[in-house]
């Protein structure tokens, strides 16, 4: 994999770590009650995102990255889950205790969200203009005309040329890339401090993907919004993020500046993930893959969750969960094995 950490040539808009993070998830454990037990979807997850930072959350399907995003906005169906420990603070609001009214003020205003499926993310029977002015006016006391003007401006900032015409269209009349740009415009409608993007380009084709992500990145830098970019694509992580969290089976296994995590991964899972990239093998050869499958999250896993699939697992790995260890470069990882032991 060709890793080009672009962090160096980026203007340091984020500046030094500010004192209050826009998002702070501390030791969050969350489970979904299922028949005769519970599915431990998140286990002791700690994620922090500072103002203006673009942070990647990466991992394979079922690792808990989407659950984290939904939990952050308190969008999981209330009856379906239980937080067993930890704290979640978004823009200084305790999201676990927030009332419906508080949530309404936070969502779509200070914190916005972009979902995976642009094809279905917009109400098909309402015009784009109606959808946009509705969200704008839900958070600002302004008239219809003013809201429309603002909506047109937002669309134009997403490089939508005939913004006025698009206002009168329905989502099903537009292309996937166009819809996702509208969804992003919608997310930036009320000057968010943080945008949570859950696989925003997975449903789009590769060329459109780049355009959309670049638009998202530029827009976030322009207004100084932080971005939580959830993806399973390490290429996206390396190109667009400042820092990254690698998740596996509901746990954060490694985190640090994107460049260093991707060039010198400390956790065997990150290592294996990088080795499984399609550009790691010569054309014609079989793709590398990580043997085994995700553990059953309904079971209590005493040790490291990756142990069963790890080439380096020892006795301790299967009995005691590894603590988070930090190295000098600001990189942390949860593993019992010393770096040197890994080949």
């Amino acid at each position: 994999m060709k890793l080009q950490p672009s962090a160096q040539n980026r203007p340091a808009t984020a500046g030094p770590m500010s004192t209050t993070p826009v998002l702070s998830i501390r030791g969050l454990s969350l489970e979904f009650p299922v028949w005769q037990g519970a599915l431990h979807a998140l286990e002791d997850v700690t994620i922090e995102i500072n103002a203006g930072e673009i942070v990647g959350i990466v991992g394979e399907s079922g690792c808990g990255k989407s659950v984290t995003a939904m939990a952050t906005m308190r969008l999981l169906p209330e009856a379906a889950y239980k937080v067993t420990s930890g704290a979640l603070s978004l823009l200084g609001h305790d999201m676990l205790a927030a009332t419906e009214t508080e949530l309404r003020h936070i969502r779509g205003s200070g914190a916005a969200m972009i979902f995976q499926e642009p094809l279905t993310a917009l109400n098909p029977t309402r015009r784009i203009g109606t959808l946009m002015t509705e969200v704008i006016r839900a958070h600002r006391k302004i008239g219809k005309k003013e809201a429309q003007a603002h909506a047109v401006k937002l669309l134009k900032s997403m490089r939508i040329a005939d913004a006025e015409a698009v206002m009168n269209r329905y989502s099903f009349e537009l292309s996937g890339g166009m819809r996702q740009r509208i969804v992003i415009a919608l997310a930036f409608a009320n000057d968010p401090k943080i945008v949570i993007a859950d696989e925003p380009t997975t449903a789009l084709d590769v060329t459109v993907q780049r355009q959309v992500l670049t638009l998202l990145q530029n827009r976030a830098r322009d207004v100084g919004a932080a971005v939580m970019l959830i993806t399973h694509d390490l290429g996206v992580v390396s190109e667009y993020t400042d820092r990254v969290y690698v998740m596996y089976a509901g746990k954060v296994v490694e985190t640090g500046p994107t460049a260093s995590v991707l060039t010198k991964p400390c956790h065997p899972y990150t290592h294996a993930l990088l080795a499984a990239g399609p550009d790691q093998v010569a054309p014609g050869e079989a793709l590398a893959s990580i043997p085994g499958t995700l553990p059953d999250l309904r079971e209590d896993i005493p040790g490291c969750r990756f142990a069963d699939r790890c080439a380096y697992a020892q006795g301790l790995c299967r009995t005691t969960p590894p603590p988070m260890r930090q190295d000098a470069g600001g990189q942390s990882y949860a593993c019992w094995i010393e770096e040197e032991a890994q080949a």
């Binding site: 969008l75 309404r104 003020h105 916005a112 969200m113 993310a121 098909p124 969200v135």
Partner: peptide, 15 residues
């Protein structure tokens, strides 16, 4: 259960 309902909720519209 449609995605647009989730979008609407995530945009801070009232229930």
């Amino acid at each position: 259960s449609e995605d647009y309902v989730r979008t609407a909720r995530a945009s801070g519209l009232s229930k």
